[in-house]
Design a protein around this nucleic acid. Structure first.
Lengths: 204, 204
DNA sequence: GATTCCCGACCGACCGGGCGGTCGGGCTAG
DNA sequence: CTAGCCCGACCGCCCGGTCGGTCGGGAATC
């Protein structure tokens, strides 16, 4: 129902958004002109402004799409996991896969933050924090269930470390390489959670 | 000797470079005008062009400074390490510390790559690869010395994973937090190399 | 020591161009 | 007719970059 209700206009907007993201990721938001986008989409500039109020709105739309999907995916993953440790592993694996499959989109989101209008920047921050809290929550539950486990760092640091390893994939992953996104995700998940699984003393 | 030989002009150039990096990191290269930079430095725009041929050169200078220092630091670190595993650990720790202490500089280098003139972009890439090879080389020597050790991923993937965890610090580290850059470096080094130290079978 | 010259450092005023964005109107389907 | 979609031509602004010239101090000349 809701899916067949997408108007032609909304479909156009999605098309424009996706092409814009591709160009932004290659040349940068500021360095990309509305004329270029119009040409790439196959429309004139005024027609672009028929669908979007201004250039900023293109960027906002990209951010919103990515953040909404990321958060939803994260919540689904945590809800489906059998244990907190599995939640962390699946979170890492699914994030890596998503990042590798949407490198252009993620690059824009990671590298154009300063172009967001200030009044929206904190909304973005809020959702990003919500995602991090998903991760941190699972970690805390895991640690609470395994009192013998000692991390050499604060939980927040561990989360940021994992997110760095995960997010950085947008810079180096190449689909022509030997790994599928899913394989890569499993590998990172396994290695990054090594310090969480191997109880150094004995299992309680 | 060589240090007292820095001309006044070179000192000015260094000053301009450092202030530019700060502004670029906050507002982005393309969004920062030469007028802003001139005002921040306390000079007029033509005087800026007296020291730098054009805007690009500012960026190139930032990249060169960071890459040269990074590579030199990396080589020193590897040369001083007692074992390949120590080399990896020290490489991680020193990179984290350097990144945390130069967040603005690193942000520019990571996020403005598409603004580099194409003929210089590959020079940058070359030096970045050289740094990665330092890391990969130490890893290969370590693996060669410990045949029982099995990584769940290709060595290159492991290197990229570590570099992600390390580099990402430019985005989240806050000096007001509980960790000094050095402490953070040690923590990341320890955790990231857990899969390399703990020989799963028995030591040969 | 005074005079001349030179040169690096510096700036106010300006330019061409490309940008984001708009205007007014022309198609075409229902 | 009307409503949605579309565009050629245009505007004002601000950008990177330049031009022509001032100023002050150190070397060179007498």
């Amino acid at each position: 129902m809701t899916e067949t209700t997408v108007s032609r206009a909304d479909a156009q907007r999605a098309r424009v958004t996706s092409i814009s993201a591709e160009i932004f990721s290659r040349r940068g938001f500021r360095a990309t002109s509305m004329n270029e986008i119009a040409a790439a989409v196959g429309l004139s500039k005024p027609t672009l402004y028929h669908y979007f109020r201004n250039k900023e709105e293109l960027l906002v739309r990209i951010y919103s799409d990515v953040l909404d999907e990321s958060l939803a995916m994260g919540e689904r993953t945590v809800a489906a996991a059998a244990s907190p440790l599995d939640a962390i592993r699946d979170l890492i694996a699914s994030r890596v896969a998503y990042t590798c499959e949407n490198q252009a989109l993620l690059k824009v989101c990671f590298e154009e933050e300063h172009e967001l209008p200030p009044e929206l920047a904190d909304g973005v921050l809020r959702r990003r924090r919500a995602f991090e809290r998903l991760f941190a929550g699972a970690l805390e539950r895991h640690l609470a269930g395994h009192p013998g486990l000692r991390l050499p760092m604060a939980p927040k640091v561990y989360v940021n470390m994992c997110l760095g390893a995960v997010n950085w994939c947008y810079k180096w992953y190449r689909s022509a390489g030997p790994c599928t996104p899913e394989q890569l995700g499993r590998q990172l998940a396994e290695t990054l959670t090594a310090s969480l699984a191997a109880t150094p003393g004995r299992v309680g």
